[in-house]
Write a protein that binds this DNA or RNA. Structure first.
Lengths: 211, 211
DNA sequence: TTGCTTGTTGGACGATCGTACAACAAGTGC
DNA sequence: GCACTTGTTGTACGATCGTCCAACAAGCAA
């Protein structure tokens, strides 16, 4: 059917990659496109172009852009988690120092960044319409909160108040992080840190008082 | 040019509306479409269809979908603001009761709702790429925080700590509100209320202590 | 009535979207 | 060397996108 099978396909850029590596490169391209062009600009073609790959290949690895965004979110969440873990390790063994390191890392690069926010927003925009993505969100939120519960527990927060304390600190960090990404000039990362630390102080002391 | 000017345009639904009313109806249609189909499903055509209006009319009132989303956000923000004001009025004159009413209203309908969240997300997705929308966001965030500063001030929070206190409570409420909209089963509106009230308790008492 | 202004329509236009698919390239087993 | 599998390409297809614009409908002034 095609009228021009003409030109010899000599210099075509055909390179076969490990399936996992290819998926990974597509995920990273998706993250870059989301960061650059936002939700509206992230199409199959744009992502394939950024990954240096033909458009058709995206469909070969992912059922659609939604699935790719979901995996991109998981990938970036893992990166954030790794960055926070590294900060925790660097903080040593003192429980409160580790909690402070958790807070500090949350408001610094690479966790707090407008580019990452774009991926978060793209993911959130899918939560309401796709139940599988809603499930994924629930899991990742639960994991985030569970880790915070562990850190708070080591700081002496009683088991009875652990759930609420973790919800509170998670919400506070999320809210500060979101606003910091959306309009970095409203307040500084340092201010966000101090606010979160003050909340931790009050939470830990009042809880200890009621031990 | 057109091949069929045939059928008499007798029953065509042509109704001229007040310019302001027409804008308003388009804004409301945009909010409905965003709530129903999310960011990806909100096109000029879909919004016009929902408003019972021809697609071309959207371009007559707004420069594009972005501008319409921005105005829709402003409209919904005004609605939220009105709902909170009504709750404040109903709470009477006691400063702390008003603050509690502020919190309660934030986690109940119509403020906390997955449908509203869709408009928020659509708006956030435009903040990074469009500087005018970033400016609008800054203004509305500042207004929200300013009102909270007023309420906190009446509760005895010292002027020196007012800014940080308002940032903290705003972030806490935003974080709880966001998670409540995204996954309503993670925790309840009642829990969110208690968490926010506890934060206010601690904030007000510690501040009074340092008076 | 007549002419003018303006909200409104509906379709045309080119661009871009996601998807599907036949052709091709590189391994792999034989 | 020869089938066979599979990652990859490029393109064609129909749908939908935002924008544009000539035609039309209603109100208003004279």
């Amino acid at each position: 059917m095609s009228a021009k099978p003409a030109i010899t396909r000599a210099e075509r850029a055909f390179t076969r990659a490990e399936p996992d590596a290819r998926r990974q490169s597509l995920v990273e391209a998706c993250a870059r496109v989301l960061a650059r062009d936002g939700v509206g600009g992230s199409s199959v073609r744009a992502i394939a172009l950024d990954a240096g790959v033909s458009p058709g290949l995206v469909g070969h690895y992912f059922s659609g852009v939604d699935a790719l965004v979901a995996e991109t979110y998981a990938h970036i969440e893992a990166q954030v988690s790794a960055a926070i873990n590294a900060a925790l390790d660097a903080a040593g063994t003192d429980p409160r120092a580790r909690l402070d390191a958790f807070v500090t890392a949350s408001f610094r690069a690479p966790v707090a960044s407008g580019e990452l926010l774009a991926t978060w927003i793209a993911f959130w925009s899918l939560v309401r319409s796709r139940s599988d993505i809603a499930l994924q969100h629930d899991h990742q939120y639960a994991a985030f909160r569970a880790r915070l519960e562990g850190l708070l527990s080591e700081c002496g927060v009683a088991k009875a108040g652990l759930r609420r304390a973790a919800i509170a600190i998670t919400a506070l960090i999320d809210g500060l992080w979101l606003e910091l990404c959306l309009s970095p000039q409203a307040f500084s990362a340092g201010e966000a840190e101090m606010i979160a630390r003050a909340a931790l102080d009050s939470l830990i002391s009042t809880d200890r008082r009621s031990d």
